[in-house]
């Protein structure tokens, strides 16, 4: 359980999943096996894992978009999810302004639209076409849309894809701010291991099953996590050695400010 940010309130998990087994649609291939998962109110949980480890399948199952081969999921009756899917691409054939997009499928007032856009720092873009936004602006618009209708859980599937390093750092900072202001719990799937782990209360390392789980410090020093990512790290790491990374994480957990330069060095793309 994470530390409580606000006193009181119902701390029953928003979603609780037990012993999930998921097959690849239309086959017998096991994507996830015997996975337990829960997320408490106001908690930030990050799911990390290599490609094909079942991260997105877990999210889609929790959202109810995917059939379960086994296990059960219970959702709190007052659960309201704000969702940012992976790789949203808007076809240029569809004319769509930011304002119109926010009213799909439920219509919202201009005031509501303006309020959520302001919260994610993109108020004033209402009349712009979605296809003309920069990557960072578009992700903020998606996050703004997810914030409509007062969610108590935000689900963000690889929300920083296509952003540059400063953009990624700024986006996660924004997610933390939003959590603080709205009190919504956040479930993220990410590739940006080190940056995102910093902002998390709990990290789940997935590879077809839960390899390890716990605080960012715990997971980053867990042998399972290091075994899973060491090979990738050796191949991908451009700036500093893995030893330094571990030391950096330890140091980072106490600090709250990261400079863009450190962030650049810390960005870790396992993709």
């Amino acid at each position: 359980m994470p530390h409580l940010r606000q006193g009181g309130g119902d701390m029953t998990p928003l979603i609780q999943a037990n012993d999930l087994t998921i097959l690849r649609p239309g086959s017998q291939d096991i994507v996830l096996q015997n996975v337990d998962f829960q997320i408490a109110p106001q908690e930030i949980v990050t799911v990390v894992g290599p490609n094909g480890s079942g991260k997105s399948s877990l999210v889609r199952a929790l959202l109810g978009h995917m059939a379960l081969a086994d296990g059960r999921i219970s959702r709190r009756p007052d659960l309201r999810i704000g969702y940012v899917p992976q790789r949203v691409q808007i076809d240029t054939a569809i004319p769509m302004t930011v304002r119109r997009f926010l009213s799909l499928p439920r219509r919202v007032s201009d005031e509501m639209a303006s309020a959520v856009l302001a919260r994610t720092g993109v108020d004033g873009l209402q009349a712009r076409q979605l296809t003309q936004l920069s990557g960072g602006q578009f992700q903020r618009v998606l996050l703004a849309r997810a914030l409509l209708h007062d969610p108590n859980l935000l689900v963000l599937d690889e929300p920083t894809q296509g952003l540059d390093q400063p953009g990624i750092v700024a986006f996660y900072k924004l997610v933390e701010e939003v959590r603080r202001e709205t009190g919504a719990a956040v479930l993220m799937v990410s590739h940006d291991l080190l940056v995102v782990m910093r902002a998390s209360d709990r990290v789940i390392c997935l590879n077809g099953h839960v390899c390890c789980e716990g605080t960012p410090q715990h997971v980053s020093s867990a042998p399972e996590y290091r075994a899973l990512f060491a090979r990738v790290a050796k191949m991908r790491w451009r700036y500093i050695s893995t030893t330094t990374i571990t030391i950096t994480i330890m140091a980072m957990t106490t600090s709250t400010i990261i400079t863009t330069t450190t962030a650049k060095a810390m960005h870790f793309h396992a993709g």
Binding site: L63, H65, I81, Y83, P85, V88, I90, I94, L104, P105
Partner: peptide
Amino acid sequence: QNLLTATLNEELAMAAGI
């Protein structure tokens, strides 16, 4: 509204119960 949401992005549509 539903047709438009489903046309724009199926994941967003499903998340809204469409």
